[in-house]
Amino acid sequence: MDFSSINPALLVAALMVSSTPILLAALGEMVVERAGVLNLGVEGMMIMGAVTGFVVGFNTEIPALGFVAAAGSGALFALLFGLLTQVLLSNQVATGLGLTLMGLGLSSLIGKPYEGMKAPSLPKIDFGPLSDIPFFGRVLFGHDAIVYLSLGMVAAVWYVLRHTRIGLILKAVGENHDAAHSLGYKVVRIRLAAIAFGGACAGLGGAYLSLVRLPQWTEGMTAGAGWIALAIVVFASWRAGRVLVGAYLFGGLTVLQLNLQAAGMTAGVQYLSMSPYLITILVLVLITSGRFKGAHSAPASLGRLFEVTR
């Protein structure tokens, strides 16, 4: 085994790139769950974003437009889930699974003619001499706009949830929808907005996969990233900052695994790639057992049906 071929600066930079899709999707899903809705369709929304982003980006040759379209289609697709769960009062678990199934099917129908084509490349932002600083230059100043956007959004979501009225209302709806309703907040509308936001984030994350990470369209390319995003939300115990930590940890494990494989390690790779899931279960147990300081349990109304009584 030869570990000297692994360059730490490149490893960290690669980690940030590979974590961005799951970071975006997890951040969106965190907001949705904070509003008391469990949307298991993240995978479906991501892959819809991936295919729309690629198709628009490829045809217009402007990656930025691809990202905008991906966010739009993710949000629209999420609203389908919103319509069923919030208006037609369907079961959230089943609807979310259906959304994933439909997303996987629809995306490969749309993307069929685009297989094997190459996406227009998204330029890295030029920071001039800053990017020549050893280690930090590569890690901090060598990325494209979406990586910075994702980090900015973590900060924004943290700020909104922590310090604004909108954040308080959102949390109120998620913790106790009946109380929020009595106070005159439009529970259904607020939840629909949160669901759309979650869909847009997942769409962006998907488009990052098809426009930057690979960058091409292949059927089923999200390969479980949406489910990992769901795991990260739990891992992060519904906190924006910890979503960042969780996403980079999960992304880091993936990069490490690829590097170890490239360095010639074959046995035990599967055990490394199952570790994020095991860690998530462990964190989940620690949270719910109440023996872990600083842990917070799930939003109280998560996944529960809201009926307007009067």
Binding site: L101, G105, L109
Partner: peptide
């Protein structure tokens, strides 16, 4: 027909079922 179209079909079936289901209770 692409293989995925059947997946879409199954997803639609579930969605319609869940959507229509509301009239059982309402």
């Amino acid at each position: 027909l692409p293989a995925a179209s059947i997946q879409l079909f199954q997803g639609m079936l579930l969605f319609f079922l869940l959507g229509v289901d509301v009239f059982t209770n309402y």
